[in-house]
């Protein structure tokens, strides 16, 4: 469905060009769940933003169902069925949770909005009319973000570290929902950027980034055994030896 061909992204820094994505080749198929992982700063979010049209790639091509979409802007790509759940969702003063979900999916009726909220572990009574300004916690913002993308029924949904800041109980539930929607779905595919060692093994395909390049790529069965120890290690490093999941 989505095909990235020799994709590169560079930025200009003090007159010097710095390559952040280097010659990425990737083929995303419907019905599959893709796990994208790799160290901090390796280019995962940058890839998501390039696919969404938020950052313009500097070389290569992006094809969606055979059509080159490089010239399409964010809105056009959204309308073609690409959705992206931000790693750090922005806040909006005066906009309620409900307002935002309705923007994401104008067709949704109140009853379905309530169901979607419960899906991500948010009690509709408490959250429907909450302001998207400063009152919500990081984990709450994250769940609302994921809910919006789920509401869009996108053909390609990208989740950028959906587990970050979300409590354990909810992570499991989110994973179940994402798997339920995207695994074996003949219409759609999902790309999950994650460091979570409970999410990675349930993906169909794994992609490992390193310094802007794809270091490893293949089926879960091939790749997971190769990276499992790194991930466990990394997780334990980042939380000073304690297991977070």
């Amino acid at each position: 469905m989505l095909h990235l061909e020799n994709l590169s992204f560079s930025v200009q820094n003090n007159g010097q060009s710095k390559q952040i994505l280097k010659n990425i080749n990737l083929q995303i198929e419907r019905g599959k769940l893709y796990g994208v992982t790799g160290p901090n700063g390796s280019g995962k979010t940058t890839l998501a933003k390039v696919i969404m049209g938020i950052l313009p790639h500097t070389e290569g091509h992006i094809y969606l169902d055979g059509e080159e979409i490089s010239g399409k802007n964010i809105t056009q790509r959204a309308n073609l069925g690409i959705a992206y759940a931000f790693q750090q969702p922005p806040r909006f003063k005066g906009l309620t949770v409900q307002d935002l979900v309705k923007i994401a999916q104008p067709k949704l009726k109140n009853l379905s909005i309530r169901k979607k909220m419960r899906d991500v572990g948010l009690c509709p009574e408490d959250y429907m009319d909450r302001d998207m300004g400063s009152g919500l916690s990081g984990g709450e913002m994250k769940r609302i973000e994921i809910m919006q993308v789920l509401a869009r029924s996108a053909k390609l949904a990208i989740f950028d570290e959906p587990e970050a800041g979300v409590d354990l109980w909810t992570i499991q539930r989110l994973v179940d929902i994402i798997v339920g929607i995207y695994k074996n779905n003949p219409e759609a595919a999902a790309l999950i950027i994650t460091h979570n060692r409970n999410i990675l093994p349930i993906c169909d395909e794994l992609i490992v980034f390193e310094e802007g390049k794809i270091r490893l790529q293949g089926s879960q069965a091939e790749i997971w055994p190769l990276i499992r120890d790194d991930i466990v290690c990394q997780v334990q490093d980042t939380c000073r030896g304690e297991e977070i999941i």
């Binding site: 969404m52 790509r77 959204a78 931000f86 922005p90 994401a104 869009r152």
Partner: peptide, 9 residues
Amino acid sequence: IKLMSLGLT
């Protein structure tokens, strides 16, 4: 960017 990625111009 967020709102555009939800389909708004």
